[in-house]
Computed example of a mutant assay.
Amino acid sequence: MSETTENKEQLDKVTESTNEEVVENTSNEGNVELSMEEQLQAEITELKSKLEEEENRFLRLRADYDNLRRRTQLDREAAEKYRAQKLLTDLLPVLDNFERALQVEVTSEDAISLHKGIEMVYKTLIDATNVEGLEVIPAEGQSFDPTVHQAVMQESDSEKESGIVLRELQKGYKLKDRVLRPSMVSVNE
């Protein structure tokens, strides 16, 4: 029995040391778990901030894309609206020359038929430019407007009020809402 007692005592010692180790390990594991939990919490916080940054970046990129798309659409619409601007601007001197040719007095039959032919071509050209949106800027009798009129002279007419256009020296034209050439006018003082 003494062996059994000795064995029992040894077993008790081993059990005590094992329990002490388990208690130590458990308390160490609590520390490890706590620091692991802190590490995981820090990682979660970091990932949340990165996610928020990426969401903000995505929203900014999306807004930039929408702005670019809208700007491109407006540019396309403006290009379509004013596509004929260069051609019409180049044709303005031609219209002026036709008008001068039509102002010439003719007497002979050949000149009259030539005059009628020029008038027909002029009307066809005017119709074609009107289809594209070319408009004559009204001038004579209107109030002077520096956005559409260019004053080159001043005259006095006591019957009309000051700032009224007395004469149009050269026609002005606009394409839809854009002035191609202002009217050259004489304005009442």
Rank of each mutant, 00 (worst) to 15 (best):
D157W: 04
L87A: 13
E77A: 11
E77W: 03
S143H: 08
I137T: 08
R71N: 14
V131Y: 11
E99L: 09
M153F: 13
R76C: 08
A139G: 10
A151M: 05
E105A: 07
R181E: 05
V121F: 11
D90F: 08
L166T: 01
Q154N: 10
L166C: 03
L88Q: 03
G133Q: 06
E109W: 03
V152W: 02
P93M: 09
D157A: 05
L87Y: 10
A151K: 03
R181G: 04
M184A: 10
Q154D: 08
T89H: 11
V179G: 03
V94Y: 10
E135I: 04
T129S: 07
L74T: 11
T72D: 02
L166M: 05
D110Q: 15
A128N: 14
E135Q: 14
I118H: 01
R178S: 09
A84F: 12
P138E: 07
P138S: 07
K123G: 07
L102V: 06
L180P: 02
N67F: 13
T124R: 15
D127Y: 07
V94P: 10
P182T: 01
R71C: 06
L102M: 10
A79E: 13
L169A: 12
S156M: 09
G117T: 15
V152G: 04
M153C: 02
E161I: 01
A128Y: 12
H115V: 09
K174T: 06
K86N: 07
R167P: 00
R70A: 15
V94T: 15
V152P: 02
N67T: 11
L68Y: 12
L92H: 12
E80L: 10
K176G: 03
E109G: 05
R83I: 00
E109D: 15
S158L: 12
L125K: 11
Y82M: 01
D157F: 05
R69N: 11
T129L: 01
R100V: 14
Q142P: 06
V94N: 14
E109H: 06
V104Q: 06
E80V: 03
P138R: 03
V152E: 14
R83D: 10
V152I: 11
K81N: 02
S156G: 11
L74W: 10
G117Q: 11
E77T: 09
V104K: 01
P182A: 00
E168N: 14
F98Y: 09
L180S: 09
S183R: 00
R76A: 12
K171S: 13
M153E: 14
D145N: 09
G163I: 02
T129E: 01
A151I: 04
V131C: 03
L169Q: 13
N97F: 12
Q170I: 10
G133D: 08
E80F: 01
Q85I: 00
R83T: 00
V121E: 10
L180K: 08
R76F: 12
M120V: 04
R71T: 14
A139L: 02
G172P: 08
E168F: 06
T89V: 15
N97C: 12
